[in-house]
Design a protein around this nucleic acid. Structure first.
Lengths: 237, 237
DNA sequence: GGAGGGAGATTGGTCAGACCAATGTTGACA
DNA sequence: TGTCAACATTGGTCTGACCAATCTCCCTCC
């Protein structure tokens, strides 16, 4: 078992059979051991690594499957690094904002009218939730809006990284949003600045105007940044 | 062992002792099993996951250490996904170019004169290598230049992601560069377009001009893109 | 005949103990 | 004092067994 993980993974393809849903079912672990001439313990160590990165799932009493990883594959990666103090929230938040900026610009280049409408609907929903006092739902809609930007650009690497960063920041984002809401004075329509700042982003994307999108998302982060939210974490070292 | 990986990792901190180099040495596996009330096999499955993401290293006959992950932690992640066909080179290349674009812009905001000089030296070296006919060394210098952009911005998330993407593209990049060099006609100084296109990036960064940096890096990718390099890969499904 | 349920098979999850392999440590010997 | 062999430490692997969740199939009962 001194192969690289990718070499090991490739071997598994030949030791599996296709399923109707597009995944591939591996032969049972005990057979795999025999075929690869390795003990079950060593095999399971490798399988658990592949499971960790989301390309493999195991169900007791059912089987083991090779599958396309979901968008949250990188999630545990960042949350673990953050939990151990090897990344702090400031660094994660900074990366997220730079990522969203470039994605908003790219989305403005690529968005169809339908894409823009979907985005606008999400902002409308967020505003409605805020007006109704349901801040948790509003935060959900907020997250959906940002995920929507990535959906337009439709690059799996960016989507995975962004999803992972969003998870790692989730706690901080909820707290920050609650604080922002509390500090803001709603206008006549019950909208907070946090809500309305999203519309220029939608407008720019609907107009396919990358430069306007860059300005709008930048203004958004100016009043809604998570950077420097908490820097008091300490590394375990 | 139904904890999340980050919860498990946090437990380990208390079961380790600091080392002079800043890492933390875990107590032996057999003791860990007893303390965590779990079998060695199950424990090792978890440890191998942490090892995979680079926050833990194991040396036979030596010990197990918690450590800060290096910049290449995400490498196996992308290479494995690519090997299994869940990511293709086009997607990886696109992400890399968008990432480098935003990083070049940010670098232009933050770069000191010393930063810019380091970058310029790398391009000079690349040009010298090309002129001397050492295309491998030139490619190395090229990679170092792009890594240098990330060093200026100094965000560990971006650095990790970029390093991982670069690894996953390494083969493709070498091939592409060899092809580009072969197709180009050097100018009077023996410089190819691939070489000289880097200087405007350095100039923009030295001038702390983000907009110029964006234009320069975009022009760079227009003649040096890896996107659509190969799209003939097939998913194992 | 159809629905429900239980026995058994399948398969991943865990455990225990042993031995192998690499590394570090100690102390005897030249 | 330097060298090296024996031993201790520690991660790496193997074997075989049993547990737990799930599925399959057939029997029973309505």
């Amino acid at each position: 078992m001194h192969d690289t993980l990718e070499a090991f993974a490739i071997q598994l393809i030949d030791l599996s059979h296709p399923e109707p849903d597009g995944s591939r079912r591996l032969i049972p672990e005990r057979e795999l051991c025999a075929r690869l001439d390795v003990s079950r313990g060593a095999l399971r160590e490798r399988l658990s690594q592949l499971e960790y990165i989301g390309v493999l799932s195991r169900r007791q009493g059912h089987g083991t499957y090779l599958q396309a990883p979901g968008p949250d594959v990188i999630r545990t990666y960042f949350t673990t690094m953050r939990a151990l103090g090897f990344l702090d929230s400031t660094e994660i938040a900074e990366a997220r904002e730079m990522l969203e900026t470039v994605v908003a610009v790219q989305a403005a280049r690529r968005a169809t009218a339908a894409d823009a409408e979907r985005l606008r609907a999400l902002v409308d929903e967020m505003v409605a939730c805020t007006a109704a006092g349901d801040h948790d739902a509003a935060t959900e809609a907020d997250l959906a809006f940002h995920a929507g930007l990535f959906r337009i650009v439709d690059n799996p690497v960016f989507t995975m990284v962004h999803t992972g960063l969003a998870y790692a920041l989730q706690q901080a984002m909820h707290e920050r949003r609650a604080r922002a809401i509390a500090a803001e004075t709603p206008d006549a329509d019950g909208r907070t600045e946090t809500d309305t700042i999203h519309y220029p982003v939608v407008d720019a994307i609907a107009a396919n105007d990358p430069d306007a999108a860059r300005d709008a998302i930048r203004r958004h982060f100016e009043i809604h940044s998570l950077i420097t939210l908490d820097t008091a974490e300490e590394a375990p070292a």
